[in-house]
Design a protein around this nucleic acid. Structure first.
Lengths: 202, 202
DNA sequence: GGAACACTTCGGCCGCCGCCGAACAGTTTG
DNA sequence: CAAACTGTTCGGCGGCGGCCGAAGTGTTCC
């Protein structure tokens, strides 16, 4: 299913968890609308995508975080074998479905797990509100570039939402890549005790 | 690369980490020798397999545990979407490259991580000897069927080797599936405090 | 109503790629 | 040495599947 370049492009475009219209996905993949339609049908039949009609448009998104996780696992093979410069930035920070992944995601998670930390309280994240949601509160998502865990699930999604709302992270031209804003640097330093040297290239 | 059924069959046949000749792999995939030759060439070019000549034969094996891990991640999608009865047994115990995976692998790992356990000493596993090997001693390999970690790396390989040497586990008709022998049941009960109810079908 | 738009279905083209038969190269066995 | 065996290269066949143009359905907007 993912072996076809057009389908792969569509799925990768959806990896941020936000829905996209069929037309947008056709443009992303560089094919005509009717070709995209056939591909999207197959992806839906394979239970990888779901869609929702809205007016005359059809909005597609990944079926769930598990699909994103599997795709993550796959893309790593390519990334590690031939690593272009652009991919290095992707390794630093990217969104994986609806939460933060990459070196930054791992680092923030590690601080979150440190005994005695008060990050959630400091940020005003209400665990009670999250617990009422249907999805699991906390899920450990292994980061395939770092081989270390980062936080997913409802909490992971809530954290990323907060980072974006506060403008600590910004998306880059609609891709999955994320960059840290100046405000983000100071916020991560304050709340997560992230050293300035963390941002130095490896 | 894995989208082709013949190549997938070959790679799956190699998932136990042991090398196989080109002829054997051709039989596994159900194609002629010359077709297999072309596929194997591609897999080697893609850095997924390496080979070693021995006499007039060529023995292929996976490049490393990371390839096996990625393939594991992939196969789970299929398994979870349409689960035939045969796959259920695969979920219980299978070898992942060179270590134990599945429910059993996860359970044994959990006991190994329990504070105060003496499993390694009881089994006479020499950590010092393993530390001298080139590969990392301990690696955490996420089990995609269980979504929980199991032990990989040099220690994981040493443990599986021990299980096999002691005839606690047995391979099934050359597949990745493993079954627990009667001796294995009592051994796992003694060393890992594994309850008899563990073997009950879920 | 008609025009613009999003998506789908149909038909046919084209190219890639997996497949095999045949022939060839290197190794082992007698 | 010949015979047997493993793996490779070459050539050609065949089919699956991705691609697009054209036409059709449903929706929105004026």
């Amino acid at each position: 299913m993912l072996a076809d370049p057009s389908r792969a492009a569509m799925v990768l475009a959806l990896m941020d968890g936000r829905p996209r219209s069929a037309k947008k996905l056709a443009l992303d993949a560089g094919v005509t609308a009717q070709t995209a339609s056939a591909h999207l049908r197959k992806l839906v039949d394979a239970n990888m995508l779901v869609w929702q009609g809205q007016g005359r448009s059809k909005y597609f998104r990944l079926t769930g975080a598990d699909v994103a996780q599997a795709v993550e696992a796959l893309s790593i093979i390519d990334v590690q074998r031939a690593l272009p410069a652009a991919a290095r930035e992707l390794r630093f920070a990217r969104c994986c479905y609806d939460h933060l992944a990459g070196r930054l995601g791992v680092a923030l998670t590690e601080h979150l797990l440190r005994p005695g930390n008060t990050v959630l309280r400091d940020l005003g994240i209400e665990l009670a509100a999250l617990e009422s949601s249907r999805r699991p509160l906390f899920r450990c998502c292994t980061d395939w570039t770092e081989r270390r865990p980062h936080v997913a699930g409802a909490l992971g999604a809530a954290l990323l939402r907060r980072y974006m709302d506060e403008r600590w992270l910004a998306t880059v031209d609609g891709s999955r890549k994320l960059v840290v804003t100046p405000a983000g640097r100071s916020a991560f330093a304050r709340f997560f005790a992230l050293a300035p040297t963390f941002y130095a290239p490896d």
